[in-house]
Computed example of a mutant assay.
Amino acid sequence: MVNFNGRQYFIGKSINQGYLGQVFKGEDEWGSELSELAAKVIEPQNQTYEDV
């Protein structure tokens, strides 16, 4: 689970990977309902995560 700007996001399994990063299946909580989403984690190219 990830909390961001007061919202909760549930990150699931990886569904794809490309040159720039990985895509994960997930859900977010809007009110009392869960909505499906895809979340992409971008991998920094030739930099550390701290530098990005």
Rank of each mutant, 00 (worst) to 15 (best):
Q45S: 06
V2K: 09
M1K: 12
F4A: 09
I15V: 15
R7W: 11
Q22T: 15
L34G: 03
V52I: 05
F24L: 14
D28M: 12
L20G: 02
P44F: 02
M1P: 05
S35T: 11
Q47L: 11
G31F: 11
L20K: 08
K40V: 04
G6C: 11
E27R: 11
L20Y: 15
Q47C: 04
S32K: 15
I11A: 01
M1G: 10
N16W: 10
F4Y: 15
K40L: 06
P44G: 02
V23N: 05
D28Y: 12
D51T: 04
S35F: 15
K25S: 09
D51M: 05
Q22K: 15
G12F: 05
Q17T: 15
V23M: 11
I42F: 10
Q8S: 13
K13G: 08
Q45G: 01
K25L: 07
G21Q: 02
K25R: 13
K13M: 08
N16K: 10
E43Q: 09
L20D: 04
S32G: 13
Q17C: 09
N5M: 14
A38V: 12
E36Y: 06
G31I: 09
E43V: 05
L34W: 09
D28C: 11
G6Y: 11
Q17I: 12
V23Y: 02
V2L: 14
I42R: 05
M1Y: 09
T48P: 00
E43D: 05
K13R: 11
Q45F: 08
I11E: 00
Y49H: 07
V52P: 00
S14W: 04
G21E: 01
Q8R: 15
Q22D: 12
K40Y: 04
V23L: 13
G18S: 09
E36F: 07
N5R: 15
Q45R: 08
S14T: 12
I42V: 10
D28V: 06
S14M: 15
E29H: 13
A38Q: 07
I11F: 01
T48V: 01
A39D: 00
Q22R: 13
T48Q: 03
Q22P: 00
N3V: 13
T48G: 06
G6A: 13
Q45E: 04
A38W: 06
V41M: 09
G18Y: 06
S14H: 08
E50P: 00
D51N: 08
Q45N: 07
K13I: 05
K25N: 07
G26D: 03
L20W: 07
N16M: 10
E27T: 05
G31M: 13
Q8H: 11
F24Q: 05
G31L: 12
L37I: 14
K40C: 07
W30E: 10
V23H: 02
V41P: 00
E36K: 14
E33N: 13
S14Q: 15
G18E: 06
V52D: 00
F10Q: 01
Y9P: 00
N46G: 00
K40N: 07
Y19G: 13
Y19W: 09
G6N: 13
N46L: 02
W30M: 11
Y49S: 06
A39E: 01
V23Q: 04
F4E: 08
E50C: 02
D28P: 00
V52M: 03
K40R: 08
Q47F: 07
N3P: 03
Q45M: 04
I11K: 01
S35D: 08
N16R: 14
G31C: 12
F4R: 10
N3R: 14
K13W: 04
N5F: 11
S35C: 12
K25W: 01
R7P: 01
G6D: 10
